[in-house]
Design a protein around this nucleic acid. Structure first.
Lengths: 262, 262
DNA sequence: CGTTGTGTTGAGCCGAATCAACCCCGGTGG
DNA sequence: CCACCGGGGTTGATTCGGCTCAACACAACG
């Protein structure tokens, strides 16, 4: 598996079919945060995945039935969300392949949110990660997981700024940059092109906008040749400009060996 | 609308003056989350507090100089915030007496935010909490800290919903309810009256509104007799109604000894 | 085929921002 | 003592970004 040079442009971008490759997004993501030892990578390859499937719209966890075990997204997109009494919905974060939920918590008092599958979603029990991280052997892995946690928090804060202080155009630009960054880290982008299997309604609920205005904002980005989108895929044409508009900054971590990805 | 089994309503609500009482907000807050053993409470009373003071506007931590040690707010209000290149500011969360920052992180890769003192602020090195929690003796304390962490995350999510999907009136109502809840838990409220030492500009930066509109929203709440405010203190006149408007729900935790249905 | 979900477009409205005064009050210094 | 000043709160007028309502286009699908 590619582990050092993160040149996602290699022609090896084949559909992931083989069993062992289901963990590729996680492995990539963590490797980018902290170099893993060969043994640690081996661990990740040997895991027996008890998978579970969800169809679009299905709830992976809900406020009534919180999660029992930590889990890992293998394929598909999900969203952590909260719904107001009158039906308004706010998406709190997107869960992409390689993302986990519930790893960190020991005495697990959990916040009332639900997680909905946005596309078809395949998850795996991620208890193994918790135990791996606990072992003294896998120091890098534990570090990587803890960094991943911090990155997740940083994304949350970005989201707050988007919703609180940015215009529709800025929000959208920023979110697209973030999603590209995350998908790239998981090896799921192709240069500046990446899958965006979301309806505009979902996007709107994430961006805190109406569907109509989300539509118009996307059109504006397209009209200005900043992005291109068709068929559930987006290509960022002008990364610099899009980042400028959204005031987007790649995750900068204090102690971590940040990988400069162009 | 009585809070959890919070014995805080006793008439012993005297101004905190004596030295040892600086930890009262923390002790109260944690006790509400998980009953502490006498020994644990004793620990909290014996701590040697190396204090540090900040004046309003001063930065307790910044993006350039992240925090070195975890700290605890003893007195005063602070805000975690992020500032956009053009000066727009979003307040990410308020730090009240008894709140901590940086406790949980071991390999400390920290997210780029700054924390500013809003009033005069007194903080203490909170390393002791980290070590206490690590000791096997103080299981309840560790639990309480971890629950506090979850509550903090829940507040973040509430904040996202406020900014993304609520109107100015709803946001304001919700925030006031939250602040009252938190201050009450720390023993810093007097029934439904509590201190709110914030300018409307600060409030605006938290609510994602303009100063002018924040002003008008507060007036509306006052005109409708939902709240009363003067001199840096707020009284919630109609808790039920205010909670309804803001769709506010008291923190409900999964495993905590709280019987959620109120 | 109709149906349903998603994207698109136009018209009109409204919540909130902006701009610009003005007030009040507590310094502060002449 | 008073004139001045600056920060914070308040108000009115106006603008504008984004919402709502209402169609319509189009593809996937039964």
């Amino acid at each position: 598996m590619t582990f050092a040079s993160n040149t996602a442009l290699s022609p090896a971008a084949r559909p992931l079919a083989r069993e062992g490759l289901r963990l590729a997004p996680l492995a990539r993501k963590l490797s980018a945060l902290r170099a893993l030892s060969p043994q640690e990578r081996a661990w990740l390859g040997m895991v027996d995945l008890s998978r579970e499937r969800f169809t679009p719209g299905e709830l992976i966890q809900s406020e009534q039935r919180p999660l029992e075990r930590p889990y890992l997204i293998l394929t598909g997109w999900a969203a952590r969300q909260r719904v107001l009494p009158d039906g308004r919905r706010q998406i709190l974060s997107f869960l992409l392949p390689g993302d986990t939920a519930g790893i960190r918590r020991g005495p697990a008092p959990i916040v009332p949110t639900s997680v909905a599958a946005l596309t078809g979603v395949e998850i795996a029990d991620a208890s193994f990660l918790r135990s791996f991280a606990a072992s003294a052997d896998n120091e890098n892995l534990a570090d990587a997981l803890s960094i991943a946690q911090a990155v997740e928090e940083a994304q949350m804060l970005d989201h707050l700024v988007r919703l609180g202080r940015q215009t529709a155009l800025e929000r959208t630009a920023h979110l697209l940059m973030e999603l590209h960054g995350r998908l790239s880290a998981a090896g799921l982008s192709n240069g500046w092109e990446f899958p965006l299997p979301l309806t505009q309604e979902i996007l709107a609920d994430a961006l805190g906008l109406s569907v109509v205005h989300t539509n118009r904002t996307l059109q504006q980005l397209r009209r200005q040749n900043l992005i291109e989108s068709r068929n559930g895929h987006v290509t960022i044409r002008e990364p610099e400009e899009l980042a400028r508009i959204g005031a987007y900054q790649r995750p900068r971590l204090a102690r971590a060996p940040v990988n400069g990805e162009g």
